[in-house]
């Protein structure tokens, strides 16, 4: 179980939208293909992606992902922020790439 604060700390991330600071993720899924996320992402996970797009929020909501971690510090467009607030999905962003972010989250789970 990882809290938003732990994700922020381990990935050197910035919190962009946090509708519920109390959520805890139980898994991680790394993908930039929304169809893949839709098909394979586990519930209550943190989604690691570079897709800074409103549709990412929609897909996260569908599969029950709680947090979207956007890599490469890509700018989060206003409409994505609005969608996340409405859907209750948190958005964090990190300067790391998907590989390093995944490795950090793995270490966070182990700690």
């Amino acid at each position: 179980m990882l809290t938003i604060d732990e994700l922020v700390e381990f990935c050197g991330a910035t919190a962009v939208v946090v509708p519920d600071p109390g959520v805890e993720v139980t898994g991680c899924y790394t993908s930039d293909l929304l169809s893949d996320v839709m098909a394979n992402a586990p519930e209550d996970c943190v989604l690691v992606t570079v897709q800074n797009h409103r549709n990412t929020v929609a897909v996260a909501t569908l599969v029950g992902a709680l947090v979207i971690m956007v890599c490469h510090d890509r700018e989060i467009p206003e409409e994505m922020i609005t969608a996340a607030s409405n859907e209750g999905v948190a958005i964090l962003k990190t300067p790391l790439n998907q590989y390093h972010t995944s490795a950090r989250i793995y270490r966070a789970f182990g700690s």
């Binding site: 930039d32 293909l33 790439n97 998907q98």
Partner: peptide, 25 residues
């Protein structure tokens, strides 16, 4: 260097040589 991406433009951002790519595409 390791890259785990499904976005080709994202892969092209990599400046390091000797990279391995993990992708679901």
């Amino acid at each position: 260097h390791v890259v785990g991406s499904d976005l080709m433009s994202d892969v092209l951002l990599v400046d390091e040589d000797d990279m391995m790519l993990l992708t679901s595409l």
